[in-house]
Amino acid sequence: MAKNPADSLIVMTELVLPNDTNTFGNLMGGRLMYWMDIAAALSAQKHATLPVVTASVDNISFENPIKLGNAVHIEAKVTRAFHTSMEVHLMVHGEDLVNRYRYKSNEAYYTFVGLDPHGKPAAVPSIEPVTDLEKSLFDGALRRRQLRLILGGKMKPNDAIELKAIFGI
């Protein structure tokens, strides 16, 4: 039974404290990735209604730093489900709470695999996108998956039909 991407939406907010920052007063990338992994796992588990494990992390774009004392808002949503895996898109915003200014900081894609009670990959529900953005992310997920499989040595470039179509090959 297909699910709507909105059903997997997780919004997580954290406050950047001194222990979370580097010597420049910016949120450390590793701490942000930790929070993003938690938000993405919650989204994937909410979608699959199964325990999940992180299979890959790709395309983390650090656009703007998040400063000490600012809030971090992480939105995670499943964009597409394959047989046992799910791609989760994350959008991260920083917010200067004093000046009431919100800005994009990061964006990323995580992949999770659903697990059965024995810790083996289990089938997950499919996704049926509704909005134009959900449809766009859904369509792009197959190309991103093929790229991940090629980079991970699990697919030969010549077998990546969706990727080849982009380049007219």
Rank of each mutant, 00 (worst) to 15 (best):
S126A: 14
P65A: 05
A123S: 12
R143F: 02
V11W: 03
A76E: 14
L32S: 07
S43G: 02
K154Y: 07
A55K: 06
A160N: 07
I169Q: 11
N70C: 04
M1A: 07
R143V: 03
D37S: 11
T111A: 09
R31H: 06
L9M: 10
P117K: 12
E128C: 06
D58K: 11
Q45S: 15
G25N: 12
A81R: 11
P65S: 08
G30W: 09
A122F: 05
K104I: 04
P125N: 09
D132H: 08
V130M: 11
L151C: 04
T111H: 10
A123Y: 04
K3I: 05
M1I: 07
K46A: 01
K3L: 15
A40F: 07
Q146P: 00
G25T: 07
P51F: 05
L149T: 01
K120M: 09
L68H: 06
T79K: 02
E14C: 01
E63Y: 03
A123R: 13
H93Y: 15
V130N: 07
T131E: 11
R143D: 08
I169D: 14
L151P: 00
N99W: 06
L15T: 07
I10N: 05
E95D: 12
V88L: 04
D58I: 00
G69F: 08
L68P: 01
T13I: 08
K120W: 02
F167Y: 10
Q146E: 15
D20C: 03
R144A: 03
A55T: 05
F167R: 04
I166P: 00
N4F: 10
G29T: 07
F24I: 02
A76Y: 06
H93M: 13
H89Y: 15
N158A: 14
S105A: 13
R31E: 13
F82I: 01
H89G: 09
A40H: 06
K164S: 10
F62R: 10
L15M: 14
M28W: 05
G30C: 07
T79A: 14
T49Q: 15
D139W: 05
S56K: 12
A165R: 14
N26E: 11
N59Y: 06
I10E: 12
P51K: 14
V113M: 09
M28K: 14
G94W: 11
M12Q: 13
H118P: 00
E134G: 02
N99A: 11
S126F: 02
N22Q: 08
V124I: 12
V124K: 10
V78D: 10
L137R: 15
W35C: 00
F112W: 06
Y110N: 03
G168D: 15
A41S: 13
A122N: 05
V98H: 09
N99P: 00
D132T: 06
I150N: 07
E128A: 10
V16G: 03
L97D: 05
R100G: 00
I150G: 04
